[in-house]
Nucleic acid binder design. Structure first.
Lengths: 186, 186
DNA sequence: GTCGGATGTAAGCGAATGCTTACATGGGGG
DNA sequence: CCCCCATGTAAGCATTCGCTTACATCCGAC
């Protein structure tokens, strides 16, 4: 039943390994040899199945980030993302968001994916307020989520890194509601 | 008057170039050859004056970040940092903070500097509230600043990237005051 | 003047990187 | 059975990286 030669399984193993390593180390510090090694296959297969390291990275971003967004309705998105982020162990750096954050601006397909992802989150959040500058407010809330992730993963900042998930979610959603609550249009 | 051979000036030129390039590209994507080239000197001098790329990076962090913190009293720190961040052009990536953000976790002296810097900012912010979880609240506000910087520099996210500085500062300080204002203890 | 150390340069070393190529192998269809 | 191509491998290529070494050159001390 086990097929030792299975292109689909190999391709998936490469994607899994890449997701983990890009998230842990970022784009630059992850080598194609590391990815192939973790997947247990020859590195040449990475290029056969994905073409280039850049293309594989773009695939990782597109695949992972969509899951995060589709889990929650807009009004629970902030709280759910925060809880998910905080419930993981502080330095668990294979969170999908981290791969995005860790990657600087290299002119690959990943740039497009990254920008598109930001737009999708912001659009979901901006639907929560009817303020004139709804999109800016949504950007600010998105920035907060991003910043919390960075402080936990890159800085390992205490006490945030080991803080209680519900406490953090409560504080942030309370403060963010100042920006995102529905008000009288003015 | 101009001294063509001036160790101090050369050293400073290297630090300036490194500050700019680390901020723009992050640690990994900045090469010692680029730094030396921008400074207009031979790359061997970088190693003579700073020992290693890691040590130079740590020096950049320590030098730049202190200036930011010492400019403002705690009660104006958030607003001032936001204004300074927003008043610069959206993708001006040589902001001191960005060098910190762009660098992943490599076990160099920079790790120490980075952590110490976070502590200093958080301490200043936490003095603004007497809530029991003051340090956590300070971390969250610091995270917000960090996230805004990331969204502007890494994502170039619109409308945040080109938003009015005062508007952003007003929105953020207003929302953050929920976390940082002085309240009755207990 | 000249000697010596401070300052700067040119060249390159060894290792690592993304990617390619030439080849082995194995399993399903004729 | 056997052939063929999908699958996988080993080896290496060209480049770039951080860093070193060997060597010029300038300036101040005496």
């Amino acid at each position: 039943m086990s097929r030792p030669r299975d292109a689909a399984a190999t391709k998936a193993a490469l994607l899994d390994a890449a997701t983990k390593l890009f998230g842990e180390r970022g784009f630059d510090r992850t080598t194609v040899r590391d990815i192939a090694s973790l997947a247990g296959v020859n590195q040449a297969l990475l290029f056969r199945y994905y073409g280039s390291k850049d293309a594989l990275f773009a695939t990782v971003l597109a695949t992972q980030s969509r899951e995060l967004l589709e889990d929650s309705p807009a009004e629970h998105l902030l709280r759910n993302v925060l809880l998910r982020m905080m419930e993981e162990k502080p330095r668990r750096e294979d969170h999908p968001l981290y791969a995005v954050l860790r990657s600087s601006h290299h002119d690959s397909a990943a740039e497009v994916v990254r920008r598109q992802l930001g737009e999708e989150y912001a659009r979901a959040l901006s639907s929560l307020t009817d303020a004139k500058d709804a999109e800016l407010r949504a950007d600010l809330v998105l920035a907060w989520v991003v910043g919390i992730g960075v402080l936990r993963s890159v800085f390992g900042k205490q006490p945030l890194a080991n803080a209680d998930a519900d406490t953090v979610a409560a504080l942030v959603t309370q403060a963010a509601s100042v920006l995102l609550e529905h008000t009288e249009p003015g």
